[in-house]
Design a protein around this nucleic acid. Structure first.
Lengths: 215, 215
DNA sequence: GGTGTTTCCTAGCGACTGTTAGGATGGACG
DNA sequence: CGTCCATCCTAACAGTCGCTAGGAAACACC
């Protein structure tokens, strides 16, 4: 298949350098939908419009392909989160927490394939690969951790368990990726607002007041 | 293997009826650890101490085995949740919500293999099987939904989006299953208390006060 | 126009997949 | 003691897996 004249022509016409990104895009979608173990290179190749061995011009192995996707996905999320709080002054830790939860939810909704794979398929990596991904996850967690720690230190948040609370806040975003639909009643921003406010109110110190920063 | 005299003897001595539950137990553990697609019947058979075809005396197919595990897991969780709020009077919806979140977290920690499989492998089921599992999930969600709706109706909770809030509360428990360790610093009950309080405070109406019911 | 490099192909490898066929063994029951 | 049924076995099926070898076509560059 994909061997007749028309296909060869199209393949020849189209810019060669896009093949790799096509592979990555389709692999991400298929891994998210059927899992890493449940997706064969044959399915990826067919989606891209290649024969299986041609994939090896662009990837080193199926597992390395997964790793690349996971590394990119985590870096992408980390960047977005860091950017979302870059402009917030240090003395407003609850605003930082709010914006982190919000951006995390939005990112998970907008790039649900990416984050589904990132969170589901860690077990498929080698020990070395997994260690690198875990390190990236730590950086993401630390953004939340430092915001919450500052809020507790300033007395605007109750003295909650930092790690457990951060894990909860992250889990909410991950969960959103599983049920969010593009044509649903709520936008990612609305969902992000909602969860951001609930997480902050969940840790808010009695007597403190807080209202969400205008987007 | 498992064919020498000693093994045969042990197999003969041990009560036959336990084989099926052994298969289920090992399958659950392996599915949780390596995923459904990533676990072969050979691995299950080896863990149980059988040859592969012998599994078919007890299961109809690999997929039916998964379905049975998922159905049991969801019913089990549903029962525990329903039991945890059975004694709570109708006029205390926030207590119900608190106890549901708490019990959900505890169950996910205590039976993390069960809930990992239940939430990860839905995509592997046939349409018919999936429909039945989704119906069970709806029942679980409805427990949370009705508690939260009552709290909003009574004015003790803010008028939050019910569905989104419930999904968030459930996601927290699911997340806990991924990082909870039996020999960690916190017990499932402590984690459940912590998340239960945060969820309730997250939706608490301004001016209302609430404190967690003594366990 | 010839040359080297990139990209894709066909053919095929050994290993593994879930599943079935058909037979041996052992305990329960008459 | 003989019969039946549940349980387990060996052998083997067709199909799929990730991956490699080796060659053709198309491009970039001189």
């Amino acid at each position: 298949m994909s061997n007749d004249f028309a296909d060869r022509l199209v393949a020849a016409r189209s810019p060669r350098r896009e093949t790799k990104s096509l592979i990555y895009r389709h692999a991400l979608r298929l891994f998210a939908r059927h899992g890493y173990a449940g997706t064969s290179l044959r399915e990826i190749a067919e989606a891209v419009g290649l024969e299986v061995p041609s994939l090896y011009t662009h990837i080193r192995s199926k597992r390395e392909l997964l790793y690349d996707l996971m590394e990119f996905g985590n870096r992408d999320l980390l960047d977005r989160l860091a950017r979302s709080v870059a402009a917030v002054p240090d003395d407003r830790p609850l605003d930082r927490l709010y914006l982190l939860v919000r951006e995390n939810v939005i990112s998970h909704c907008r790039h649900s394939d990416q984050t589904t794979v990132v969170f589901t398929e860690i077990r498929e990596l080698s020990d070395d690969q997994r260690a690198k991904i875990v390190a990236l996850r730590r950086e993401i967690e630390n953004l939340f951790r430092s915001a919450l720690e500052a809020a507790v230190a300033e007395g605007v948040a109750r003295p909650v368990n930092i790690a457990v609370t951060v894990f909860g806040a992250l889990a909410i975003g991950r969960g959103a990726a599983t049920w969010y639909r593009e044509n649903g009643p709520l936008s990612p921003e609305e969902i992000g607002d909602l969860y951001g406010e609930q997480v902050v109110r969940g840790v808010l110190a009695p007597g403190s007041d807080w209202s969400s920063p205008g987007a």
